[in-house]
Design a binder for these strands. Structure first.
Length: 218
DNA sequence: AAGGCGGTCAACCGCCTCGTC
DNA sequence: GGACGAGGCGGTTGACCGCCT
């Protein structure tokens, strides 16, 4: 016998919240404050599970939530923190107080994971070329060239993980680099119109790969 | 015009953690 | 120390939307 559900499923409404339900929930929380979610459905008459009420509040209705596009800085923070901690979305969200863990998780799954995969694929492709070129006459030259590209990929990765060159990787690992310091430093910088990944995928990698391919052909 | 398809994101599910008794 | 309950968390789902054919 497993644990009983958090609330009686009979008569519980599911699916998207209506504006009326939102108003009821917000009004109640403004009067009583968030917490004691178990009593919220009973006291408000909402036909929602207590968990659903909490989730609606924390992910959507809570004041101070920033919606819309993520800035390059936020993107860099997410990539960096995800690399450090893995899928600890709540911990990552604590460094981005205007974003919810759900938002960050969705953004990672729909945008960043794809970009990271592209980067890894290109890196793997280059390594593959390195192996296949072993029998080639220009083996050493190619190897050096491809090694250089792979190295630059690593360096770029390191730089983005280090908040776009604001903080060194060593410092981050040692815990000497905190988001608030970086925010101040970043405020002095021009905001790039493209993210690192966009720039890298569009420009840097394209031109470098062209060079490698040209060498392979020649 | 309409059906297919993929991307996005709000919401749900079930497990985990922590506090209380 | 263990049972129980509430809240927290991460993975997953499904509705919706826009684009493509």
């Amino acid at each position: 016998m497993g644990r009983p559900p958090c609330c009686d499923k009979v008569g519980i409404k599911k699916g998207p919240w209506t504006p009326e339900e939102d108003i009821i929930l917000v009004t109640y929380i403004q009067e009583h404050g968030p917490g004691n979610w178990r009593s919220v459905p009973t006291n408000t008459g909402l036909l929602r599970c207590s968990k659903s009420c909490r989730l609606r509040w924390t992910n959507y209705l809570r004041p101070g939530i920033k919606r819309g596009n993520f800035t390059p800085h936020e993107e860099g923070m997410i990539v960096h923190l995800q690399a450090l901690w893995g899928n600890k979305w709540a911990a990552i969200a604590s460094y981005l107080p205007q974003r919810t863990d759900n938002d960050i998780k969705n953004y990672w799954n729909t945008h960043l994971k794809k970009k990271m995969k592209n980067t890894q694929n290109i890196s793997r492709l280059l390594e593959g070329w390195m192996i296949s070129s072993a029998s080639h006459k220009k083996q050493e030259t190619n190897k050096d060239c491809i090694n250089g590209v792979v190295e630059s990929v690593d360096l770029e990765l390191e730089s983005v993980l280090a908040f776009d060159n604001v903080c060194s990787w060593d410092k981050i690992l040692s815990g000497d680099c905190y988001p608030k310091d970086d925010e101040r430093k970043l405020q002095k910088q021009e905001s790039p119109t493209l993210t690192f990944f966009d720039r890298w995928l569009l420009d840097e990698s394209a031109s470098q790969l062209e060079g490698v391919i040209e060498q392979q052909v020649n």
